[in-house]
Design a protein around this nucleic acid. Structure first.
Lengths: 195, 195
DNA sequence: GAGTTCATGTAATTTGTTACATGATTCA
DNA sequence: TGAATCATGTAACAAATTACATGAACTC
């Protein structure tokens, strides 16, 4: 198996639930996983090839001729075992990149209003995402006992909701602090002008 | 300039503050920025070469002969302008990868205790990080007015603190929910055994 | 004398993104 | 008729990690 490509486990995890085409895997990632793990077609199709070579999945071409040709993948016993072994190991450190914080870290090089605006854009974007998570939460709550997977989906949605709220709270506090700070600067300037 | 490599702006931002060697840039990133933007030597040294080629920075070899040779970089006016222009644009979407959530998403494939343990490991790791942020906050609070940059550093520390707390709260809630869930399962099992 | 830190760098590899090519079907 | 969606894939590029090589100085 090729070193430690984690995207292959995402694919195995999805195929462990049900057989799918590469295109459906992408759609599933976009609808359920992209907030904490994204993957492009450029990763998915080659990964499926690797997984098939390693006998982790097998493929069959769909027989019915309507629509474009579809290659349906299913997980093998070997794939199930590899997935299980991976799930047993504690996760490695999460890794994150926040451009907004880099810009703020160097914020003294530009006007305060610019920093405030950048944070405001960040806040608005994440307000939208929060709404999405709240919608998912509502939906999942109604079907929580219908499937043994739902409790796990629910926990990831709780994570998303919690983090989005933290983003938004921080953004509001940061904007307030900067506005106050701007006030102080203006105050000093005013004093300077008076004297 | 080479497309949109954001690490070069991190380097420019640091050099905008003071002249440094590549090695010092790495140390500075590790001590102040790595929680929201990491970079390895394998990125830093080649990026410095690119920046020098593009006249964004210039270098001079240190003259004194004690210790290993040092190449000290400083930002040029062109570099300052490029940094400023970048800082003015709102940040692109933050991007994150949480292996712990992927594993939880597929959690039904393994024992509940395993999921609980994975979350507990996540929580412990982030408790340590939270302590670090709290320490930074204390330190910065005492020198907040000594430098115009400090307010911005402080805001990034507030972000770190807020997010770490959210991680930890979520982990505790998730563990509770899973334990409760386990109780329900055991209950049903017990009923099944009795009948 | 051994280990760590300071210091620079390259090479190999992995990982991920973006753009492109192809072509059928469905929907307005 | 034209746009969107379904579906598969490759090629080029960009970003990032890891391992390695080198060597001086400082610390225990």
């Amino acid at each position: 198996m090729a070193k430690e490509n984690k995207t292959i486990y995402v694919i195995l995890g999805l195929l462990n639930h049900e057989d799918m085409t590469g295109y459906e895997i992408k759609k599933r990632i976009d609808s359920s996983l992209k907030f904490f793990w994204d993957a492009s077609f450029g990763q998915i199709y080659p990964s499926l090839k690797i997984l098939e070579n390693d006998m982790m999945v097998k493929s069959k071409n769909e027989e019915n001729q309507s629509g474009p040709e579809r290659i349906i993948y299913s997980i093998t016993d070997k794939g199930k075992e590899a997935l299980r072994q991976w799930l047993l190991k504690p996760a490695e450190k999460e890794h994150v990149k926040y451009e907004v914080l880099v810009k703020l870290f160097f914020g003294s090089a530009v006007d305060v209003n610019n920093n405030i605006n950048n944070i405001a854009v960040f806040k608005e974007r994440n307000l939208d995402t929060l709404k999405l998570f709240e919608f998912y939460k509502l939906q999942l709550n109604q079907v929580l006992n219908e499937d043994k997977d739902h409790i796990f989906y629910y926990l990831t949605v709780l994570f998303g909701e919690k983090i989005q709220k933290a983003y938004i709270e921080w953004a509001e506090e940061a904007i307030d602090i900067l506005k106050e700070h701007k006030g102080e600067v203006n105050c000093e300037k005013a004093k300077g002008e008076k004297s």
